[in-house]
Amino acid sequence: MRPLRPPRDEEEPTGGGGAPPPPPPIRHLDINIIRVGFEDFTAEDDAELANAIQVTRAIYARVRLNLRTVTFWRISVSEAAEHAIIDSAAEAEDLTWDWTVPNDALDVFVVRVMNDADGWSAVDGSCDKNSKGMTGSVVSLNGDAANSANTLAHEVGHYLGLEHIPDDGNIVGNNGSSDAFTGIHAWQGVVMRRHCFVRA
């Protein structure tokens, strides 16, 4: 588990002689967006998903984490079967257990409806997608556009190591009830940029 308090050191050199430290180099994250039960996605759903990706990219860019390649995948209604909706964290784990994109990007499963939550993700998840546990993030389109955007940034943030914090306005803030928040701390960028899915 990651610490709740910000790490005290950046991983990059901070310069010297009183000059402001150079910004850390930009790091890159590739993700697979997997629409679960894709035939039932409406144009409105797709637009909401596209917006969520755009907003997440803008949030992460503020901490020099570049959402670089977003590759799209689909699971049909008949393949997804009952997992076209998700009812619990256990079912979310079943979904990530049963399905894996065979590449080295983070799998993000998108369902249209989820009971009892807007999304689920491991905290500081594994980069071995065949390992046990939740090997990807699962997000829903339960809420409005702003909420769905937060859900994507929030759950991917969890996978990359972020835990809930009390801060109002933060993507994982308000102790997890982060609604449509888009704020992000520099130290959270440091945490995420250290994850094994993030590339130089």
Binding site: I33, I34, D46, T71, F72, W73, S76, D98, S131
Partner: peptide, 13 residues
């Protein structure tokens, strides 16, 4: 490890 997970199909939005 969990062997032999299924693979989604490539898609576009």
């Amino acid at each position: 490890a969990v062997p032999e997970a299924s693979h989604p199909t490539p898609d576009s939005l």
